[in-house]
Design a protein around this nucleic acid. Structure first.
Lengths: 184, 184
DNA sequence: ATTGCCTATGCAACTCGTTGCATAGCAGGA
DNA sequence: TCCTGCTATGCAACGAGTTGCATAGGCAAT
């Protein structure tokens, strides 16, 4: 399980409450590791019990109190150990690929609008990545270690989206051709 | 949930037992949808109860009996309905990306062998895809609808692996540079 | 002879992850 | 004024997915 580790990384980059973490997971981190607030709260409590993180109650005016967590020494050590552990091969689950093969037993044209929706959402995400890159990494020749590593991950995201867009275009051409062949 | 649907697609392409399905999921299908035999057996029983699939006991000599499943009419209808339902956005979980960002709080050099292992496994998978393409699609100008759709999914897998290999090379260059900067 | 592997199915127990709901104060708009 | 939405945390119940183990016959190699 890597949710603990994703949370540790996020807290090392910047301490925060469960709520703040949930929002970070909705944004930057969530693009390669998703989690709901429920999961985050539960895991945070477990991590606090194991002394992987330390919590501090913070009173706020006009808002509910929050518990700000930060990574503790034991958490940092656990992260270092995990880094050295061998690979758990990623389990890919690409629902759209299942649908495409399923279309052979139904009408390929029925999938077109679905694939177009996917295409739009990937295009939007790519635009967001590129915008984030400009904003967070204005000078690519002056990055510290942390930024270098964040940037190489971002490059991976950008390349993934570019590749996916090209593939979805390929899928659309194929589906449209099959649909045209069927009803000439 | 798409496991039911992945199983239906697999059974429509070719009827088979739970055991056979589990092996298919380990091989071709498993590259975009994983499942253990436990899950498959449980889901098959549920699907049989819902009349999505029909089972037939087959006695074999020298081997245990098996239950060969095939997709039923209700299953085909369920698949067609699912095809028309809107998107559940894919939740990506890229453990290696978490590790790369985690390396900022430890030693980037500690990740190099891990990334190299990933690189090897992706290179091997790409080779398997290309080999499978040659074997299963010798004549790309004479494909029926089912093969066209299988092939466009395979193209996606190939492009994904190519992109991933290039990115992992990028990651390795970055990690090595950071490691060299640290111990000059 | 024994060991280990392959086919074939399944139970039990567990963890992981999602969904719906609840609380509670404050802010802003219809 | 009421309704919606934001911050902030949490419970309860469920469904998805994993892990360990069990059975049971046949096959091949040591």
């Amino acid at each position: 399980m890597a949710l603990e580790h994703a949370i540790l990384v996020s807290l090392l980059e910047q301490p925060g409450s469960g709520y703040e973490l949930a929002r970070r997971f909705d944004r930057s981190i969530g693009r390669f590791w998703t989690a709901t607030h429920q999961q985050i709260y539960r895991v945070l409590r477990r991590m606090e019990a194991d002394d992987w993180v330390a919590a501090q109650e913070v009173a706020q005016d006009g808002r509910p109190d929050k518990k700000v967590y930060s990574a503790a020494e034991a958490g940092r050590a656990a992260l270092a150990g995990w880094l050295r552990e061998p690979v758990e091969p990623e389990t890919v689950r690409h629902e759209l690929a299942v649908k495409i093969r399923a279309a052979a037993f139904d009408d390929p044209a029925a999938l077109i609008s679905e694939v177009e929706r996917h295409r739009e959402s990937h295009a939007a995400l790519l635009a967001r990545y590129l915008h984030g890159e400009e904003r967070d990494f204005p000078d690519l020749d002056a990055l510290d270690t942390r930024q270098e590593l964040q940037h190489v991950v971002l490059r991976g995201g950008i390349e993934y989206e570019r590749m996916t867009l090209a593939w979805l275009d390929d899928v659309l051409v194929t589906l449209r051709r099959l649909a045209a062949d069927r009803t000439p």
